[in-house]
Computed example of a mutant assay.
Amino acid sequence: MVLPDRTHTASSESHADAKAHWIEPLSDGSHVLIRPLRLEDRERELEFIHKLSPESRHFRFLGAIKEISPGLLDQLMQVDFHDKMAFVALAHQDGKLVEVGVSRYAATETNNQCECAVTVADAWQHRGLGTALMRHLIATARLNGFKRIYSIDAAANTHVQALARDLGFQSIRDPQDTTQLIHSLQL
């Protein structure tokens, strides 16, 4: 999948460039800044997760989770620009820059595959933000040599099903858990 032509305000030679960032227009006319996750985003990431609705948090972590442990937050913040990658979407709200979405992947033990996830703040859903975040993630996975990207999601998560379909992912029922779907894209 080729990224649509966007306003590139930094080097776009590689999606794995820590300084790369893009201003993305959304379907409602608003804009967000998308860039790789940085260590300085730790508090933003924590605040973002806390502000998710219980349903969105459940879909993101595939289970009920109230508090984010420091260990889990450490894991979410680990980005090496190859085997672990994350992009954040940032928007100005009330005079400060806040996280409104995140996409990420992590290499799996199976060669040339990575598992991905995308989460969009409840108030920012249905604007095309998930699509924008995933396009950057898919392009980076492809540039980094991955051959397959996949996601395991709750079968009840109809938003992710629609997003996966729109991005060309194939979806099957998880043979180990029928309450989940596996969305897979050959890169």
Rank of each mutant, 00 (worst) to 15 (best):
D5L: 13
K147H: 14
P70R: 02
K147F: 11
H50Y: 06
L72P: 03
G168A: 09
F146L: 03
V88R: 07
D74C: 04
Q186P: 04
L133Q: 03
Q75N: 10
A139I: 11
N157R: 01
V120Y: 04
S184E: 08
F61P: 04
E43T: 06
A155V: 02
D80R: 10
H136V: 10
L163N: 00
A121P: 03
R142N: 14
E67V: 10
A64R: 05
K147R: 14
E109L: 10
D122M: 03
F61A: 04
L3Q: 10
Q170A: 14
K96A: 08
K66T: 14
A20N: 09
E55V: 13
D74F: 05
K66N: 15
D83K: 13
H8M: 15
D122H: 02
Y150C: 05
W124S: 02
S103L: 10
W22T: 14
Q113D: 10
K19F: 15
V32R: 02
V2L: 15
E43Y: 08
D94M: 08
R104D: 12
R35C: 01
E43P: 02
A107G: 11
R60W: 02
E67I: 07
G95M: 04
D5K: 13
D28W: 01
H82S: 15
S53M: 12
R173Y: 01
R44A: 08
T119K: 00
V32G: 05
A162M: 07
Q161A: 13
S171A: 06
M1T: 14
